[in-house]
Design a protein around this nucleic acid. Sequence first.
DNA 1: TATTGTTATACTCTATAACTATA
DNA 2: TATAGTTATAGAGTATAACAATA
Lengths: 146, 146
Amino acid sequence: MTADQAFPQLTDPLENRLGYQLRRASAVMMADLGRLLAPLDLTPAEATILILIGANPGCSQSGVGRSLGINRANMVPLIAALLKQGMVEKAPLDGRSQALTLTSAGRAKVEAAQRIIDKHEARFQALLHGSNRDALIAALHAIRAG
Amino acid sequence: MTADQAFPQLTDPLENRLGYQLRRASAVMMADLGRLLAPLDLTPAEATILILIGANPGCSQSGVGRSLGINRANMVPLIAALLKQGMVEKAPLDGRSQALTLTSAGRAKVEAAQRIIDKHEARFQALLHGSNRDALIAALHAIRAG
DNA sequence: TATTGTTATACTCTATAACTATA
DNA sequence: TATAGTTATAGAGTATAACAATA
């Protein structure tokens, strides 16, 4: 018995649903990125936080959270892990805020992560040979704003 | 002090990342659908399961899971909830499989959910005025296959 | 009065391992 | 040997409420 006889495909009324396909496609890319970043001991969330701090030295923890859609409470253990690993430093900004910057170890990690992410993105973009990649990004921005 | 002075936007090096924008766009649509389905006492996951059973009467629980990317173990409480709510019925198929079908209450729920999903999808598709909607779906399929 | 950072907490989602019964 | 259904469990991710210190 062949595999496709053993598991006949179900009729899928969700094939043409934007929200559903967005979710499944996102899951595929997230899982791939997670596998690729694991050897660096980074999760996709940690990598995006490091990238954002690298591009915005002196930013606050809440600012990072607002930008990434992660709420303040959930930023605490994420930043704590990056501090513990020596990738991020805090410096008092005013009495309540702390300015975040990357350490040199953090900068090295970000560069390694960026190289991995670049390859990962290029691999998926290559699958979109027909469609316009910029139009896809523009569509995703429009959906986010909706 | 205006709001944008209080929360200056951070420089965002993720603006142009396919995987990241996919994830954020997906989260926006999922949150919207969750809000819209809540009055029906349905989660997006339950709605997609009902839709799939409705389109494939007699399918198995594992078949639904394979199609939706939900593993067998996690299907158990999902199907149990739909059985308890009287929306799905099980009938012995062979000694180990159960054929799933919708009850009349389940069919009514699916129809109500489909109406909500249709409006939700139409609202987001309207935001994509410039770009080709079919090209977007095709791109998402290509990413899923990658 | 609003914001930052924090703690505690709870709920959902996802993943794995192991088991029984059946094919 | 592989599949269906199940149980138990653990780890993420996400959400809210509340608090202290500060603006």
